[in-house]
């Protein structure tokens, strides 16, 4: 038996928003520790890794490990039926071929349940080696979304260049060229507005704009985003999810032919 209760179901709505542009379907692996998802996009260029710890939920029970293959368009239809303040309970029997979503209004006067068929997915798990990154940039997630959106008007690729002075995002194309430089913030009142850089070595890498823009669909999950870069390895874009865990996106770089 699997059962997870979430008082504010808006978190799950935001998670779904953050993955559905990259993935059509995904397997949610449920265990005693929580819910995990790891899936590559169809083109095998980016990977989504989601971790929601069991202790973040208001109630969590998972007697046996359970892998739920879910069509994300179907799940989106169901989650649209929930109010942001509804209390969500997800339930599944062991070895079930369906999962139930129950939404209760705060005053408990309205209770809805939706039963969704699970699908069988061929799981392809990737081993992600521990990496010491040359540059770790923390910045406001809204600012990162804005930069990705603005630069995608100029070219298909964004060059991210990090030194100890700051980080530069550049794009170039038919219109011309664009450069956005962010310096480390000296003093900020709010931690979430800070730009901080931990640098071992300067790094410059090129990435496809389209994927960066898809990652920014997670902006609502966290006020800050963390970018981890090393030469010739995938970029990691991480958004913390409150008391639950995180969503990480890995994106392979573009290299000179």
């Amino acid at each position: 038996m699997f059962e997870a209760r979430l008082v504010q179901c808006s978190m799950l709505k935001k998670v779904l928003e953050a993955i559905k542009e990259l993935l059509n379907e995904a397997t949610f692996d449920c265990s005693d520790a929580g819910i995990q998802l790891q899936a590559m996009d169809n083109s095998h260029v980016s990977l989504v890794s989601l971790n929601l710890r069991s202790d973040g939920f208001d109630k969590y029970r998972c007697d046996r490990n359970l892998s739920m293959g879910i069509n994300l368009a179907s799940m989106t239809k169901i989650m649209k039926c929930a109010g942001n303040d509804d209390v969500l309970t997800i339930k599944a029997q062991d070895n079930a071929d369906n999962v139930m979503f129950m939404f209760e209004s705060q005053n408990q006067e309205k209770v809805s349940d939706y039963d969704m068929k699970l699908i069988n997915l061929d799981q392809e798990h990737l081993g992600i080696p521990e990496t010491d990154y040359s540059c770790i940039i923390k910045m406001p997630s809204g600012e990162f979304a804005r930069i990705c959106r603005d630069l995608s008007q100029f070219g298909e690729s964004v060059v991210i260049s990090c030194t100890k002075e700051g980080v530069k995002f550049s794009a170039a194309g038919d219109v011309g060229a664009a450069n956005i430089k962010l310096a480390q913030t000296a003093n900020v009142d709010k931690e979430e507005e800070a730009v901080t850089i931990e640098m071992q070595e300067p790094v410059t890498l090129t990435f496809a704009c389209r994927y960066l823009n898809s990652f920014t669909k997670a902006t609502a999950l966290s006020p800050q985003v963390q970018l981890s870069m090393s030469a010739d390895v995938p970029l990691v874009v991480e958004y913390k999810i409150g008391d639950f865990g995180h969503i990480r996106y890995y994106l392979a770089p573009k290299i000179e032919e």
Binding site: M40, H44, V45, S46, L47, E124, H125, L126, G127, I128, P129, S157, T206, A208, V233, P234, Y250, A252, P253, K254, I255, E256, E257
Partner: peptide, 14 residues
């Protein structure tokens, strides 16, 4: 010209 790398080149299938 830039070539898009694939993730499988960096990570292992397990």
């Amino acid at each position: 010209m830039l070539r898009q790398c694939l993730l499988t080149g960096f990570f292992m299938n397990i």
